[in-house]
Write a protein that binds this DNA or RNA. Structure first.
Length: 555
RNA sequence: UGGGGUGUCGCCAAGCGGUAAGGCACGGGGUUUUGGAUCCCGCACUGCGAAGGUUCGAAUCCUUCCACCCCAGCCA
């Protein structure tokens, strides 16, 4: 994490540009998603970076949909992306753009390149283009169409636009250098023909579409972007980005600076659109918003907060080294945020029936329970106590290991907000499994305090058998077993475990999305699958569990 | 084997010639009506991919080497 005085390398560049009075000290960035899929936590890094930089330098950040390939893009994704960016807490204001807004301008620029003899229509087949391009170690060969006259090219390109050629029969190419060691400079494709696939915004108005390499620098320049931030794999494209803007300098007003940074990788998950799509398509997850997915919609449904994600993006820093961030850092940022805002509530996931023998049969009491020890302003609620309660199965052990602070024969524990109890008898089934225990309580310890201030080691959560309501709880762990998953076989078969829990009655009217801490378990939120008669909770993240560590040491 | 990048603690990441920030993870302790939270302490003892060199002084400059990542879509 950076100290307040330290800047990341992009900020260093911006600071220097400001000192040199570049762009009139203006800072303008953009987040340019292609509407061909859903945003994920990796995009969040880019969004936080671009919008964050703009905010920090009193600039603006545009949201621009890079919609130059109708065969892959859909309007539905546009709306989903807007929703996600907004949810993350960023506002593009009036700066919502589409590359397709610039198709006319892009076309005129292409004409200009042709007139300068810097672009030509090439009739080589895709396969031939590949062959002519050469390899990493061998230079390419000039296309036989490279020396066609300007007038001929103008005519042909116009023909392309008019739909006179079939898909794949020809393309517009830049005329740069087939012997360049940088393959991107070997006469790259600027326009290709796409017929029969209407564009989600321009319909059938165009049958030629600009490539990323061609449209991106021009779109940036049109919008007056000062710093065009992208990921590392575009580093090789920067000479082309600059070449295009230099050749078009009389047509576009400014020349943005392309800066590349390392994309985010997280342990135990995958980030590429292809792999995420595969998880959805194969049905390993229920959809893009499955709570196990690293998509923004998945994280949102899981119960992540925008604040936690932003904090995380701040914590991981921005640099050029390829890296894989430990998912534990994301979870740390999440807990840090949820700890302060989540009301505490009791839920028993694996119930064990407890009868308190010396508690009157028909009696029940209302007890006070604070909603959040971190925040007194969140107030308190009443909880109901009675003769029969449920505790967690693993909060009882007949023959406890060392350092077991919970209920066992002879050991006194506190029921949170209620009374001290002691185990008096254990009832088992034929197989020897504990099915019920009988306890006695100390009436002098109401609220969980004793006058003699005797110590109890453990405090257990519980619910009243008579009042608790059932709820489905979905427990999640990482989608992949290995920190750096490669194949489907690295998938975690137990990434989702469902169970039926007993929860406090106050949750009966909990609304979808609302977030709670289930005491001693973790943070949970109400899932959209909830029905009036059956709440469904997603485990957002478990509480840190030092007992689990101690147990491992003991073994 | 061409070009472009990157290598600082288990994982991120500051450092920009003056003697290795911070966060996560991990370990120890205090406190605690969540084995939560919180607080304190420890955590790169000539070490910054390696080897040489320049310098009073090098993670920072120079040289050579090594490792890893990206590029041969009419995808972005």
């Amino acid at each position: 994490m950076k100290t307040p005085e330290s800047f990341n390398f992009i900020e260093d560049i911006i600071n220097q540009d400001i000192v040199l009075n570049k762009n009139n000290k203006r800072v303008e960035t953009r987040f340019p998603p292609e509407p061909n899929g859903h945003l994920h936590i990796g995009h969040a890094k880019s969004i936080c970076l671009n919008f964050g930089l703009a905010a920090k330098y009193n600039g603006v950040c545009h949201l621009r949909f890079d919609d130059t390939n109708p065969t892959k893009e859909e309007a539905e994704y546009v709306e989903a992306i807007k929703r996600d960016v907004k949810w993350l807490g960023f506002d593009w204001g009036k700066h919502l753009y589409y590359t397709s807004d610039y198709f006319d301008k892009l076309y005129v620029c292409a004409l200009e390149l042709i007139k300068k003899h810097k672009a030509f229509v090439c009739h080589l087949s895709p396969d031939e283009i590949r062959q002519y391009r050469g390899t990493l170690t061998h230079t390419g060969q000039n296309s036989p169409y490279r020396e066609c006259s300007i007038d001929e090219n103008l005519k042909l390109f116009e023909g392309m636009r008019m739909g006179e050629f079939e898909e794949g029969s020809c393309v517009l190419r830049a005329r740069i250098d087939m012997s360049s060691p940088n393959l991107n400079m070997r006469d790259p494709v600027l326009y290709r023909i796409i017929k029969n696939t209407p564009h989600h915004r321009t319909g059938t108005m165009w049958c030629i579409y600009p490539s990323y390499d061609y449209s991106h620098p021009i779109s940036d320049a049109i919008e007056g972007i000062t710093h065009s931030i992208c990921t590392l794999e575009f580093e090789d494209h920067r000479p082309l980005y600059d070449w295009i803007l230099n050749e078009l300098s009389s047509f576009v007003c400014c020349h943005p600076k392309q800066i590349e940074f390392a994309r985010l990788n997280l342990t135990n998950t995958v980030m590429s659109k292809r792999k995420l799509l595969e998880l959805v398509a194969v049905g390993y997850v229920t959809g893009w918003d499955d709570p196990r997915m690293p998509t923004i919609s998945g994280l949102r449904r899981r119960g992540y907060t925008p604040e936690a994600i932003r904090k995380f993006c701040e914590a991981i820093g921005v640099a050029k080294a390829n890296s894989v961030v430990d998912i534990a850092l994301l979870e740390h940022c999440l807990r840090e945020d949820l700890n302060l805002r989540s009301p505490r509530v009791m839920a028993v996931l694996n119930p064990l029936r407890v009868v308190i023998d010396n508690y009157p049969e028909d009696k029940h009491e209302e007890l006070d329970a604070e909603n959040n020890p971190e925040d007194p302003d969140m107030g308190s609620r009443k909880i109901l106590f009675g003769r029969v309660i449920y505790i967690e199965q693993n909060d009882f052990c007949e023959q406890p290991p060392k350092k077991f602070f919970r209920l066992s024969p002879g050991q006194e524990v506190r029921l949170k907000h209620a009374y001290y109890i002691k185990c008096a008898a254990v009832i088992k089934d034929e197989e020897g499994k504990v099915v019920e225990i009988h306890c006695t309580y100390d009436p002098e310890t109401k609220g969980g305090w004793s006058k003699d201030s005797r110590k109890v080691l453990g405090t257990l959560h519980w619910v009243s058998a008579e009042h608790a309501i059932p709820a489905e709880v979905r427990l999640y762990s990482s989608l992949f077993i290995k920190p750096n998953p490669k194949e489907a076989e690295d998938l975690n078969p137990n990434s989702l475990i469902k169970c039926t829990a007993l929860v406090e009655p106050c949750l009966a009217k909990a609304s979808v999305g609302s977030q709670y801490q289930f005491l001693r378990h973790g943070y949970f939120c109400v899932d959209i699958d909830s029905a009036p008669d059956m709440l469904v909770f997603n485990q957002t993240v478990a509480l840190r569990d030092s007992w689990a560590k101690t147990q491992k040491e003991i073994q």
